[in-house]
Nucleic acid binder design. Structure first.
Lengths: 139, 139
DNA sequence: TTTCATTTTTGAAATCATTGCAAATATATA
DNA sequence: TATATATTTGCAATGATTTCAAAAATGAAA
């Protein structure tokens, strides 16, 4: 469990001024295991922050993604969600219940890919889709 | 290079009636190496087919994806594109020029992932993002 | 502290890829 | 041919995300 002060420090190191909104959003995404959307982040923080704009949430999440502090998932093409888990992992999305779960990797993504000479890779995502065990059993 | 007759046969085997529109769309996506969007498919076929609706293109592409005949890419979250290449491969999207290129894999995706017992995996996509060699040099 | 410039936030309107829907057309079967 | 079913069409609606300009907050200089 990382402290609020450490998260603040992390923003500063990335050259991002730790405003109240930014710190709250950063904390929420980093602590969540739920891959929240901008809308979910907004709903969760709205009450605590008094006034908060959905636009701010969108802008701030983009800021964090560009700074490499969090990652953006496009596993479900009808919405975008965000991931504060910094460990290398894959994602599985159940086509029935919609749940997105983290899966451990036993090796790095890039080791599998050929012909990457000359490329500069900033981001890698492995997305799996199908049926989760619960939905598979119900079928 | 696969023939039109073979593509027609493939549709029939999948239980899909090979209408003029469907066959044209299937042929276009299978032969293209460009990962076309629905819009691109529509623009490319519009003249040849006399009348063609963008809605038909969307519906048909979804039909093919659900049948496992082509795959849908969500590597760029601002649009959806489609891939007729049936070989296992990864995708790289350049953050500068937007180009999406195929990359060979030297091993299967799933071998890397742990904890998949009980899951039924229908689709797997590995997306890499960064700068392509051309944009990397220009920088 | 006050002033001024810069950065950040806000909310309403606009955007645009995708979908819903109902009518029109094409195809298969009897 | 007549009838039922499947497919296509085009327009309107949807909804996540972005644009934009004004308001608020912050930092630096005086």
């Amino acid at each position: 469990m990382v402290t609020r002060a450490e998260l603040r420090e992390e923003l500063v190191k990335a050259g991002i001024r730790p405003s109240v909104q930014r710190l709250a959003i950063f904390e929420y995404v980093r602590q969540s295991c739920q891959h929240p959307t901008a809308e979910v982040v907004y709903e969760a923080l709205c009450d605590d922050l008094g006034s908060l704009s959905l636009t701010t949430v969108y802008n701030t999440l983009k800021l964090f993604v560009d700074a490499g502090l969090i990652s953006m998932l496009t596993i479900d093409d009808t919405f975008r969600c965000f991931d504060g888990n910094r460990c290398c992992h894959a994602h599985f999305r159940c086509n029935k219940c919609g749940k997105i779960v983290d899966l451990q990797m036993n090796k790095d993504f890039l080791s599998l890919v050929e012909g990457l000479d000359g490329y500069c890779v900033n981001d890698a995502q492995l997305y799996l889709k199908g049926l989760c065990p619960a939905c598979e059993n119900k079928k």
